[in-house]
């Protein structure tokens, strides 16, 4: 939230628009602890996003469960979704989020279809390999 405010203005990187609807989003930032109660909804939102889509795991809890090794916390978003960038910290500074966004933009410029982590592309590529190989 504070990354979009005046001091760290995220709009100068072209990321001004935070859309509440997953159907219009390219990037999902999972910030905060992911609990087992919330996990099915996060997965549903991810599947509602149209491709191409990327995921940033923001914060120690989203990366790996953080300090909460308990009965109700998923130990990292990557247990249920493919993650492109991990931003560690508790909480990470806004500059870290901006760094992750800039790196993501650079990665998108250079990546090929095989580097992409969205699941449908992966399974499509696997099927192609099987039919070719």
């Amino acid at each position: 939230m504070v990354a979009s405010m005046a001091t760290w203005d995220i709009a100068r990187f072209g990321s001004e628009v935070f859309r509440p609807s997953p159907r219009q989003a390219d990037l999902m930032i999972v910030a905060g602890t992911l609990t087992k109660k919330m996990a099915p909804m996060v997965k549903r939102i991810y599947e509602q996003m149209p491709e191409p889509k990327w995921v940033i795991a923001y914060g120690a809890c989203a990366c790996s469960g953080g300090i909460f090794k308990t009965y109700s916390v998923v130990q990292g978003v990557d247990q249920i979704l493919p993650v492109d960038f991990y931003v560690p910290g508790c909480p990470p500074k806004p500059e870290a989020l901006l760094a992750a966004l800039v790196k993501l933009q650079k990665k998108i410029e250079k990546e090929s279809l095989a580097d992409r982590k969205d699941l449908r592309i992966q399974s499509h590529l696997e099927r192609e390999e099987e039919s070719h190989g």
Binding site: K43, E47, Q75, Q79, I80
Partner: peptide, 9 residues
Amino acid sequence: FDKPFVPEV
């Protein structure tokens, strides 16, 4: 805790 977590969507 030692099993991977699979959410039911």
